[in-house]
Structure formats: structure tokens, C-alpha cells
Lab assay of single mutants.
Amino acid sequence: KELVLVLYDYQEKSPREVTVKKGDILTLLNSTNKDWWKVEVDDRQGFIPAAYLKKL
């Protein structure tokens, strides 16, 4: 499984997104879309802008 580091706080703006904090380490589920990556946060799955994440 691939992990990503959150570079900036992000507040979800729709039900398909998730809220994260800078410094969080998340499981990356899908990065095929270059703009929005799907991650897992506390048993929730959702999207975050790829620019907010860095692969570890």
C-alpha cells in the first residue's frame, strides 16, 4: 500500500472529499487522476487535491 503526506490543511467542500491536516500520513487508494487523489482517512474514503499531497 502506498502512503502520502499531507502538505497543507484541507477542508472538504463536498461529500466526496475528506478533511485532512498538514502532516497527516494517509493511505493512497488511487492517483490515476492528476488533479484529485483518492485517500483513506479514519475508515473514510474520499478525494483531496493532488497538489496537497506528496507520495512517500
Rank of each mutant, 00 (worst) to 15 (best):
A50Q: 06
Y8C: 14
K1V: 13
I48F: 02
D42E: 11
T32K: 12
D9W: 03
D35R: 11
L53H: 00
S31G: 11
I25M: 06
D42T: 09
R16V: 09
E40I: 10
W36L: 05
P49C: 05
G23R: 02
D9Y: 04
A51T: 15
P49W: 03
K21P: 01
Y52T: 07
L7Q: 04
L28V: 07
E2T: 12
Q11C: 12
K38D: 03
P49G: 02
P49H: 04
D24L: 09
T19D: 03
D42G: 15
K38C: 13
Y52S: 09
D9Q: 03
N30P: 04
Q45S: 14
L3G: 03
K1M: 12
I48C: 13
K55Q: 08
D43R: 10
D42V: 12
K22A: 14
W37T: 02
Q45I: 14
Q11S: 12
L7V: 07
I25C: 05
A50P: 09
E17D: 05
K38N: 06
V18L: 14
L53P: 01
G46Q: 05
K22Q: 11
L53M: 05
A51I: 13
D9V: 02
A50S: 13
V39E: 00
E2G: 10
E17I: 03
L56S: 03
R44Y: 06
V20K: 00
L53C: 15
E2Y: 09
E12T: 09
E2C: 13
D42K: 15
G46H: 07
E12F: 10
I48S: 03
K55N: 07
S14E: 09
V6L: 02
E2K: 09
L26K: 02
E2F: 08
L29P: 00
I25G: 00
R44G: 06
N33Y: 09
L5D: 01
K21V: 08
V4S: 02
D35Q: 14
P49K: 04
S31A: 13
S31H: 10
R44P: 00
L5S: 04
L26N: 01
P15T: 11
K54C: 15
K1F: 15
V4C: 11
D35F: 15
K34P: 15
A51E: 13
E2D: 11
K13A: 14
K55P: 09
S31F: 06
I25L: 07
V18T: 05
T19G: 05
L5M: 10
K55S: 07
K55E: 07
K22T: 06
E17L: 04
N30R: 06
L3M: 12
K13F: 06
A51C: 14
Q11D: 15
L26I: 14
V39M: 01
Q45L: 07
N30H: 08
Y8I: 09
D24P: 00
W37A: 03
L26Y: 05
K22C: 09
L29M: 08
Y52D: 04
V41W: 07
L56E: 04
K21C: 11
V20H: 02
P15H: 11
A50C: 08
I48Q: 00
L26S: 01
S14W: 07
T32G: 10
K38Q: 14
L29C: 07
V41S: 11
D9N: 08
A50Y: 02
V4F: 04
T19Q: 04
K22S: 08
W36Y: 10
L5N: 02
W36N: 03
K22P: 02
T19N: 05
W37G: 01
L7C: 07
K13E: 08
Y8A: 14
K54G: 05
K13Y: 05
F47K: 02
T32L: 10
T32H: 13
V20S: 04
Q45P: 06
A50E: 04
L3R: 11
K21Q: 12
L7T: 04
R16I: 13
S14C: 09
K55T: 08
T32D: 15
V6E: 00
I48N: 01
K38L: 15
G23V: 01
P15Y: 09
